[in-house]
């Protein structure tokens, strides 16, 4: 048995003539955060969908705990403990924290045909789980709409963990958040990994990825530029690898130029 909780070997995905992914290989250990970086259009979304069972890879294999697996649907992936938290979080803002937490998987009690949603139990679990992350749910029946973006993200992650995730795939969890909220979410992600989960963190924000990641895979135009351990990398090197570095340098020069002109 390999020490990697999950391995993706030589994953390729084609849409007609378009090569969306070519020969992407990634390995994630238990308790590790692997950051998947890439600019827009690098193939991040396609890769997530392939990992979470929405797309079937055209080439390559997925190995979970040393065994080769094939996902036919997102549900298959979920059943094998691969949970994906998408950007939209799958939260309904008009519904309560508890109703969101257990949406689609409500605990029930009572006799057949008259089974009721065990709201008391659900409330307790939701409040307890949110408390563990440091989010004090005063009233689990409050609407999710009243929570901040960071709290919502934590709720979605917490829900995935509660329902048995072993591998957590997070799609841009910090992209819509302010600095403070983003740091709260990142802290929670570190905590989740320290409890033995393998985390795949997808982002285009190097400044969010670098402090928390253990290893980094950079995706560019559908190909992996390789996986690097943190000690072999610097923030600047990572940034320039994303092909974003060069662009940003150029932008900086341009802005300085504009600034100079407007001052004159």
């Amino acid at each position: 048995m390999s020490e990697n909780l999950i391995e993706f070997n030589g994953i390729s995905k084609f849409f007609g003539k378009v090569i969306a992914l070519k020969d992407v290989t990634m390995k994630v250990k238990k308790g590790e955060i692997m950051c998947l970086l890439g600019d827009n259009g690098a193939g991040k979304s396609t890769l997530i969908k392939t990992l979470s069972g929405v797309h079937k890879p055209d080439e390559g294999e997925i190995i979970i705990e040393g065994e080769k697996k094939i996902f036919d649907s997102p549900k298959d992936a979920l059943d094998m403990g691969i949970a994906t938290v998408y950007q939209d979080l799958a939260l309904v803002s008009l519904m309560s924290v508890t109703r969101n937490f257990f949406m689609g998987r409500e605990p029930q009690k009572g006799i057949p045909f008259f089974k009721t949603f065990d709201i008391e139990k659900a409330n307790n679990i939701a409040a307890e789980r949110m408390g563990q992350i440091g989010i004090d749910i005063r009233d689990p029946s409050q609407a999710v709409g009243t929570m901040s973006g960071g709290e919502r993200q934590c709720l979605a992650i917490s829900r995935a963990i509660y329902f048995g995730a072993k591998v957590l795939i997070l799609d841009e969890p910090t992209s819509a958040l302010g600095v403070h909220q983003a740091s709260v979410v990142l802290k929670y992600i570190v905590k989740a990994a320290s409890q033995g989960l393998a985390v795949i963190l997808i982002t285009h924000n190097v400044h969010h990825a670098f402090p928390v990641g253990n290893s980094f895979t950079v995706l560019n135009r559908g190909k992996s530029l390789g996986t690097y351990a943190k000690k072999d990398l610097s923030r600047e090197k990572l940034l320039s690898m994303m092909a974003g570095g060069e662009e940003l340098d150029k932008l900086e020069v341009e802005l300085r130029e504009m600034d100079r002109i407007s001052k004159n």
């Binding site: 799958a90 939260l91 309904v92 008009l94 519904m95 109703r99 949406m103 409500e106």
Partner: peptide
């Protein structure tokens, strides 16, 4: 208010895509 099906009704109307993603 009291059944799983009820929660699914709220979820289906509140966010169709999200509800589908979590198995409703």
């Amino acid at each position: 208010m009291k059944t799983r099906y009820g929660n699914w009704i709220f979820a289906s109307g509140g966010d169709k895509v999200g509800a589908t993603n979590v198995g409703v």
